[in-house]
Structures are given as structure tokens and as C-alpha cells.
Write a protein that binds this DNA or RNA. Structure first.
Lengths: 232, 232, 232, 232
DNA sequence: AATGAATGAGCATTCATTCAT
DNA sequence: CATGAATGAATGCTCATTCAT
């Protein structure tokens, strides 16, 4: 099942020209895969759009699946790198959350929804390797925000009674559905506005409740206590 | 809406036996499609698992696509019906939100997430009909909650400065990611707990900020006033 | 290969109701076959248009091929019968030729070219039985004209230096192409006019040459003889 | 004219080897199609007989239909070219008619009548493209004779009171039936003889009636006059 | 290094035909 | 007598992948 150790001779040592080729192919493949999805994209299509032969594609990548995985990995690496570098430059937890949300929406929206579809749809696949890799990439991609939220939880700036993964799911899940809506219904919302609104609500949800309902509860407790004393 | 008018050999469902067959096939197909996705599922596989010939499958469904659409529709119809009936029986907006969240998680979790995958993956598809149908089904499925939230917005119980679709996206998006997590990492969370936490945060996010704070302030004011009078 | 002696029980003894059924089916089948050709006609289509089930069709006819053969035979029988009865009622060889030509064109043209196509196209088929039957039917169909021409040849009214089959081929071949033209190009000529012109030319071709060129040749011979004598 | 713009895997013929392959396949296909007719010929059969895989066939031809069309076109092109070149080399209208008739009979007879069957049978077909192409090819094929006849009509050498298409139909229709006879009954006539007889009759039918009779009368007159003078 | 050429393995779909009821 | 139901056997067509040159 695993695609290791085939007796096929594939290029391993990459010269400068080779490297350029690889990038060329990856570029085209990203486009083709994101436009058609994994199953409906064809290696021929990729080769033709890259101006090379199918055989050449297969001399740089062991299989269609391999190529697709590299495409996805490349995309994640790029965007992850950006987040890793830029998130720390933003000050304040809320601002960082906003930054991540905004960046995510902008990036996936401008990509024409292609990569979004690809990652979301093909992220599963019966193939375990595939799914595993994606999970790992996703972990790296969401790490910057996770770090921020974790720290905020430790400092008490964010609710501590909620599991961190749940917070993450709320952030990325919400955005994903927004994007999905855009993809399917083709009605592009104003990114800045949506990012603002989303951040607003998310932050409201994340902030410790003692600042609102919990405080109320506490106060209610105090009053109850006062009443008890009073009755006595 | 778009089925061709060819002299199709498709049987109209008439007798009781037919109906059973259709359900049988739909059942198997749901399984196969949700396990492998549309593209990787084969009609032969479905036929074999149903213990019938491929031809028989095609005598009840005009095409693979048709079959898949009916599978998805059937699944949505089931769950939509439940929601439509039960949501109104729950009292209070927050409780209704909690009910929907809990139901959704339970249903998809116990379904092995297969249908979830299928719907999410095939929701796009190059085919317009397909995507259109799914969009419609989704609309019906989310309608009960949407009604609740809309009413709550009108009554001021829920923030009015946020677009309704965004609220919906937060609810369903968050849940989807939770399920995704489960699917990929196979770590099944406690559904009741997760549903509670999610509802908690969502509700916090939805409730008008001023309202909760105002309420708090008002309450504090009232109590303070009462205390003053009492002490006097 | 031959379709004899299958253990299948087919209806043999036909009651009055059965006979009606057979005719009904044959009527519909003629339509369907002539509209779509043998290969593209389906037994389902025939059954549906006859308002019965496929199974019923197969209880009256052993196979699709059988049905088609009977259709063709029925058509030929009808038109042959007419010719056999009416041709002798026309007086004069030329008039009889004209009658046959006109009848043939009218019949095939009004039939919407369907049967024409069917007979002409499916007349061959890899099946020897099929082709054999058609040949026989054709023989009967062309017999009336053949008789007329044969008699005319014997009486010297028609050239005797041409094989009778060749005369027949000219008559039916010419007409067939005229019909073909109509079928493909959809430009319907005036039947009466075309029949007249065709008869005119055919008759001119059939009439003994001594009445024209042969007479001339004879005359030339005479003159040559005279010249010879003169030179002597 | 009507080939789809899908990302077809069809090879463009480039090298010498490709060209050979194409011809190889076309050769086999001509055989298979003409033996079994379009519907009963299978791509697998063609591939096997060509000693290659089905996939290879489909890499040179977009579809079965495409392949068949090319076969027919190829055949027509060959024979059309010959006629276009050789007919003008023959002198005299009658001789040209004879040449075309003879050539046609020889060609189709030696071809085993397979192509004849194919063209006749598939000339219609529900497919408009197909029928259209064949009509065009037929037009080209019959053009040389048509030109000859048209000129002859203009010069008065051939009857002007008959539509040109009718003349054509008589020529090709007659021949077709002769071939049909051969095909079905397997009695091969002597081609030269048949060609002569057919030409004789056709020419008799085409030549203006008055002309031949007038010529005869004129000739008789002239000779009589000469004789009178001579005798005096 | 690059590719033209070839293909094995599938897959959805069709349809004449059978048979239990 | 009629048929609903079921199917075996084909068939056209696709595509990732290999390999000699």
C-alpha cells in the first residue's frame, strides 16, 4: 500500500535547471489541481500546461499522488512561513487573532478558492499517508495561532475552561464555512468587514466569562450570600 | 430539474418489493460513497455489496450521479425532518442552539463521519446540478436554526450587527472542524461536553455585548438599590 | 448460430386476440425500426409504444431479429400484393413500367423513408438468414415488373441483348438513389414528375435500338454495301 | 468541424512511425467496419487485429465514430482522386461515362463490396455530422461525372429536359443495384460486359431523342441525295 | 534530460432476454 | 395471458504509468 521502495529510477540529485523544472511543474500542478480537484485533474493536463511531456512529469515525481502532496505541502509551507514570521510582529492577543483571521481569508479568497477546495476536499482521501501529511501541515499552519491562544489562556486573557483545540476549531471552522459559502454561492463578502466581525465574535467568545456572565454569576452569589446573612 | 429525457430503462418504483430494493441499494450506496468518496466508489462495488447485479442498480437509478444525489438527499431529508420537528419543541433560544449543536454532533459522529466527508467533498464538484442540490439541502437542513437565530435577532436577544449567515457559518463551521479533528485523529471527544462548551462560547458570541453588560449593570443597580433601602 | 430449436416456449397457436396483439406489435415495431434502424431500435421502446411490457413482446416473437424480419416481411407482402394485383390491370408495357415506378416512389416516399432506410440499410447484416429472406422478399416484390419486362423482351418490345436483371437493377437502382437523395438532403421532388421523367428515360433505354441507333447502323451497313458495289 | 474541445489525449501525427501506425489502423478498421458495419464492429476487434491495444487506437482517433469517418473519407479520397485525374483524360462524353461506370464497378467489386455496404448503411445514421460528411464525400466523388454530364447538357449532347441529379441517380443507382445483386447472390457478372451494357443503355437514355432520330433522318437524306446524284 | 509511444486495468452504462408470479 | 424484476455480457472510452530511444 505504501509507495516506498519502487524499483523505478527517479531523479534524486537536483541540479539548478532541475530545480527550476520542479518549481515550474509544481506551479502548474497547483493551478490544475485546485481548479479540478485531485480526481478530475489529469497528469496530461499538467504536462501540457507546463509545456512538457507527461513522461517528464513522472521523472520528477513518482506519482500523481506524490505530485499533489508536494503541491499541498508547498502551499502550506509558504503560508505557514508567513504566519510564523508575522504573527509575532503583531502586538496584543486580540490583534493577533484578527491578523490570522484576516490573513487566512485573504489568502484563500484570492487563490480563487482553488487551494481551499483542494485542501478541504482532498484532505481526506482513503490514503492514510495523505491524510497524515495534511494533518501535520495543518498543525504547523495553525501553530502560530495556537501558541498565541495557549499563552493567552495561561495568562488568563482567554477562557481556561475550554480545550484549546476547540478554540482552534471555532476559528478555522467558522472561516472555512465563510469561504465555502463564497465558493458555492459566488457571493464574495467584503473581506475586511467579515474578518472584523468574525474576530469580534470569536474574541467575545474567548474572553473569560468573569468579565460578563461569570462576573454576574459571582455577583449573584454575593447577593445570595448577602441575603442569607440578612435572613439570619 | 435536469434529468435527460432519453428512453431511460429506469424503473418507476411501484410495488413494495421495488421500494425495499431501492432502500436496500440506497443503504449500501450510502455506505460505499461515504467510505470512498464519489470518484472512488464504483457501481460494481455497490451492486456486489447489495448482492445484486450492476444492471439492477441502473434499473433503479439513472446514473451513478443520480444514485449519489439520492443518497445525499435521503440523508439530509432524514436529519432535516428531525430538526424541523424537534427544534420547535425546545424552549428558549439558547436551549435551541444547544439542541441543534448536540444533535448535529451526535448524528455525524455516530454516522462514522462518512456522510460528512461525502457532502463536504462533493459539495463543490464541477457539476452545477450536484452543487446546487447540495446547497438546497443544506439550506433546508440549517433552516430550523436559522429561523431561531433570525427571530432572536429581531427580538434583540442576539446581536443585530452581525449578518445571519455569519452566525450560521460559526455554528456549523465550528462543529465541522470538531468532527474533522475526530475523523483524522480518531480521538473521540465526549459529545455532551463538547456540545456544552461549544454552545457556551457561541452563545456568548451571539448575545449582544451591551445587553449582557447592561443587564449586569442593571441588576447590580437594582440590588444595590434594594440593599440601600433594606439597610435603611 | 442459427436460432432454431431453443427450449423456450413461445406462443404457437394464435387465438383471435393474440392475432390482434401481433399486428399491434408489428405496427409499432415497423415505426420504431424504420425510425431508428435495427441497431438503434430497442425492444423496450417498441414495448412502451405498444403499451405493453418487453416480456410480452418476447412472448410473441422469439427475438428482436425475428421481430424485425417479420416487420420487413409484412411490409414487402403488403406492397407485393398490391403490385401483383394492379400491374396486370394496366395495359401496355410502358404504362406498366410507369405504374411500377410511380407506385414505388409514392409508397416509399410517403412512408417517411423509414422502411426504405430499414430495408436498404439492414438488408445486409452479417446474418445470412436475414439477407436471404430479404433477397427472397425482394424477388417477389420485383416479380411483377420482371414478368412484364420478360414478356416484352420475348415479344421484342424491349431489347433482348440485355440481361433481364440488369434492366431490373436500372429501374430499382435509379429509384433508390432518388429516394436516397430525398432522405439525406430532405428535398422532396415532385413524385409524379420524377416518375414520368424516370420512366421516359428508362423506356428509351429499354426500347430496342433498331428503332434508333441500330436502324442507323443497319442503314450505314446498307450504304457501305452499296458503296462497295458501286466501287466494283 | 464538430470535434469537441476536450483535453483529448489524441496524438497529433508527427513522426514517420506515427504515420505508419495510423495507416495500419485505418487499414484494419476499413476491413472490420466493412465486414461488420459500424454498429457491430468493435474497437477491441480492430485493436486486436492490428496487434495493438485498444488504448493505442484511441490515442490516434478520438472516437470510434471518428475512426470510421476517417476510414470512409480515406476510401472516398482515394477513388475520387483517381476519377478527378483520369476522367479528363478520356475523350468524348460517352467514353467518359463508360470510363466512370467501368471504374466504379471494378473498384467496388474488387473491394469485396464491404465499403459499399458500409457507406450505404451508415450514410444515414442519426448523426448529422456523419451523414453530412458522407454527403460531401459523395458529392466530390460524383463530381467528375457530373461535370461531364452538365457540359454535355449545355452543348446539347445530352437531354436538357431532365434534371442533372436524376441522371446521376440513374448512373450510380443502377450500378449500386448491380453490386448489391452481386453481394447478396454472390454471382459475379463479367464487369467489362456489364459496364458496356449499362453504358449503352444509359447513353441511349441520356441522348436527346430528337437528336438521334434527327441525325438518322439527316444522314438518310444525305445519302439518298448522294445516291441520286451518283446514279444520275 | 526529455519524450513519443504504448498499454493494462478500469468503469459507467446499455439491452436483449429469461422467469417466477 | 401478461409482466415486473433481474441480469450476463458487452462496449466505448480514460488515464496514470512505463520504457526504449
Amino acid at each position: 500500500m505504501s509507495t516506498l521502495a519502487r524499483p523505478v529510477r527517479k531523479r534524486e540529485v537536483l541540479g539548478a535547471r532541475s530545480e527550476r523544472r520542479v518549481k515550474e511543474i509544481l506551479g502548474v500542478a497547483r493551478q490544475v489541481f485546485s481548479e479540478n480537484g485531485y480526481e478530475n485533474a489529469t497528469t496530461l493536463d499538467i504536462a501540457r500546461q507546463a509545456g512538457i511531456s507527461e513522461a517528464t512529469v513522472f521523472s520528477y515525481f513518482t506519482s500523481k499522488r506524490d505530485l499533489c502532496m508536494q503541491v499541498i505541502k508547498g502551499w502550506y509551507d509558504e503560508i505557514s512561513l508567513v504566519l510564523e514570521q508575522e504573527v509575532p510582529m503583531v502586538e496584543g492577543t486580540r490583534a493577533q487573532l484578527h491578523f490570522v483571521v484576516h490573513k487566512h481569508l485573504v489568502t484563500l479568497m484570492q487563490d480563487g478558492t482553488g487551494m481551499c477546495k483542494l485542501v478541504l476536499s482532498e484532505g481526506r482521501s482513503a490514503d492514510a499517508d495523505f491524510a497524515g501529511l495534511i494533518a501535520e501541515l495543518k498543525r504547523r499552519y495553525t501553530a502560530p495561532l495556537m501558541k498565541v491562544l495557549a499563552a493567552a489562556q495561561r495568562s488568563g486573557e482567554v477562557r481556561q475552561d475550554m480545550p484549546l483545540p476547540l478554540l482552534r476549531d471555532m476559528v478555522y471552522g467558522s472561516m472555512e464555512h465563510v469561504l465555502w459559502d463564497y465558493m458555492v454561492n459566488r457571493n464574495k463578502p467584503d473581506i475586511a468587514t467579515t474578518a472584523g466581525q468574525l474576530t469580534d465574535m470569536l474574541w467575545t467568545a474567548f474572553v473569560p466569562v468573569e468579565q460578563s456572565q461569570q462576573k454576574l454569576a459571582q455577583f449573584r452569589e454575593d447577593v445570595a450570600e448577602a441575603l442569607r446573612r440578612l435572613e439570619n
